[in-house]
Design a protein around this nucleic acid. Structure first.
Lengths: 249, 249
DNA sequence: CGGCAAATTGAGCATTGTCAATGTCTGTGG
DNA sequence: CCACAGACATTGACAATGCTCAATTTGCCG
C-alpha cells in the first residue's frame, strides 16, 4: 500500500466488516481523492448553517459534534474516534445542522462531496456500508437522549465512561477498562447536560467509591461489572457485531 | 393508481423530493410487496433486542420510539407521523435497539427486509433518498439531545410543540399553528425528560401567558414568533428544503 | 518563576421531582 | 339516561438533585 492510500485502511476495514465488498468496491474506496490536514484542539471542522464541499474522516485523534442554544449553552451530541466519518451528512444534506470541533490534535482526511456522491450512486454496497455506519450513529444519538433525559448525574457520567471504554476497545485504541479520556470536565458536562462543577463532584465520588481510578485524563475501570450496573449500560445500541449478512450479497 | 399501490403515494412523494428518481425507480418503489395492518394505541410495533423481518411505514396515525432504563424509566426518543418510515433500521441492522409503539390508532405497511435490501442494492437513487431520510432523523435526534440536555422545562416543551407544528404542517396534516397533539402529558414528559406533574404545570403556565391555547389534545399557537423565541426553535435541523440537488443526478 | 487553564471545594439556592389528593372527561353497562 | 370505572389532568406541600457564585488549588508550559 502506498503512503497516499494508507490513511484509508481503518475506514476500509470498518466498511468491510459492514457489507461484503468486492475488489472493484475496494479499489473505488481507496481511490477516493482526499486532502489530508492536521487540526489543533478546538479547531472548527464543520460550522452549523454552512454548506460544506468536503466530508471529513478522522485518521487520528478525537472530535466532537455540538450545538449551541440561543442563550449560549452548549450541548455536545457525539464524540468521534479515529476511523469515524464525522461528516457524511455533508455529502447528502445541503446545510450543516451542527458544529464539529477537534477534541484533541487530529489528522483528518477531507473528501470532496462530488466524489462521495459518485461512489454512492455507482457502488451500492459501499453506500450500504456507509449507511449502516450512519444508522449506528443514530442509535448512539438515541441512547444519548435517554442518557441525558432519564438518568441521574452519576449514571450519566458512568454511562459515558462505559461507552467510551467499549468503543475505544473495539477500535483497538485502548485496553478495555483503561484509556485516555481526551475531555475536560467542562466537556464532559456539555456531553451529559450537567455543569462542570457537578461533574467534578460526581467524578470524585465515583473515584472515592472505587468505581473508577483517575489520574488526570487517564481512566481505569477496576470493576467493569459494577460500573456497568451503576451506568445501566448495555452495549446493544453500539451494534458492535453489525455486518450486512450473507443475504445482502 | 390501484388500491394496492395507493398507500405508498405519500412515501413516493417524499422520496421524489429528496432525490431525482426515474420511471424505473418509481415502478420499483411502488412494486414493493407489503402487508397492511391496523394498530391500536400503545400496541408494540418493534421490540428492543428483537430481529425484525419487516420494516414499517406509517400510512396514517402516529407512533413513537422509546427506550427503557434499567430502573424502568421511559424515554421517548422520537415521534413519527404518516409517511415516516419508522423502521428502515430493521432492513440494515440486525437487532432493534429500541421499541416502537403506536401513539394513536395507525395504519401501517410492513415491507419485507429482503425486498428493501434488494431495492437498496439495485436502485442507488432510491437508496440515497432513503438514506437522506434517515440522516434527517439523525439530525432530529441531535436536536432532542440538546433539548433534553440544555433547555429548561419551559423551553423544552415549547420546543416540542414548535417541532410538531412545523412537521405536521409540512406533511399537510395540520394548519400551521393549530393541530391535534396526540400525546398525554405523561408521554410529553417522557419525550422531554420531565415528569407528568411538571409538564402539567408548565403547560398551564404557557397557556396562562397566552403562548399556547389548549383544549384537550388540541393545540393552537396564537403567536408563533413568541413561542419560537421561548423555545429557542430554529427549523434548520428539520432540513425541510432538503433534496439531493442536480449534481447528484 | 509566572501565567493560565483546569480541577476542586464550599455555601446557599432553585428548578424540578415526589407523594398524595382531588377534579374532569369518556365510555360502558345497567 | 344515569351511575360508575378508569384514565388523564390538576393542584398542593415538601424534598432533593443539581446549579450558581466564588474562592482556592493544582498542573502545565514557556
Amino acid at each position: 500500500m502506498t503512503t497516499a492510500t494508507d490513511p484509508f485502511q481503518v475506514m476500509l476495514r470498518k466498511f468491510e466488516s459492514r457489507a461484503p465488498l468486492d475488489d472493484e468496491d475496494r479499489k473505488a474506496l481507496m481511490a477516493l481523492p482526499f486532502r489530508q490536514q492536521r487540526s489543533e484542539p478546538s479547531a472548527y471542522i464543520v460550522r452549523e448553517g454552512q454548506r460544506h464541499e468536503r466530508s471529513c474522516l478522522i485518521l487520528s485523534g478525537f472530535a466532537f459534534r455540538h450545538k449551541l442554544t440561543v442563550d449560549g449553552a452548549r450541548q455536545i451530541v457525539s464524540i468521534h474516534i479515529p476511523g469515524d466519518f464525522i461528516d457524511l451528512e455533508s455529502a447528502l444534506l445541503n446545510v450543516a445542522d451542527h458544529n464539529v470541533q477537534a477534541l484533541s490534535r487530529c489528522e483528518l482526511a477531507f473528501i470532496p462531496r462530488a466524489a462521495l456522491r459518485d461512489l454512492i450512486l455507482t457502488r451500492p454496497r459501499i453506500a450500504a456500508a456507509m449507511w449502516v455506519d450512519t444508522l449506528i450513529d443514530s442509535s448512539i444519538f438515541r441512547e444519548w437522549v435517554v442518557n441525558v433525559g432519564r438518568r441521574d448525574a452519576r449514571s450519566r457520567i458512568a454511562h459515558l465512561l462505559c461507552e467510551f471504554a467499549r468503543r475505544l476497545e473495539v477500535a483497538g485504541l485502548a485496553e478495555e477498562y483503561d484509556y485516555e479520556l481526551p475531555m475536560t470536565q467542562e466537556q464532559i458536562a456539555d456531553a451529559t447536560g450537567l455543569t462542570a462543577v457537578h461533574v467534578n463532584r460526581v467524578l470524585m465520588a465515583l473515584a472515592r467509591e472505587g468505581l473508577i481510578a483517575r489520574a488526570k485524563r487517564h481512566v481505569r475501570i477496576p470493576d467493569w461489572e459494577r460500573l456497568r450496573r451503576v451506568a445501566g449500560f448495555s452495549e446493544v445500541y453500539l451494534h458492535l457485531d453489525q455486518g450486512l449478512d450473507a443475504e445482502a450479497a
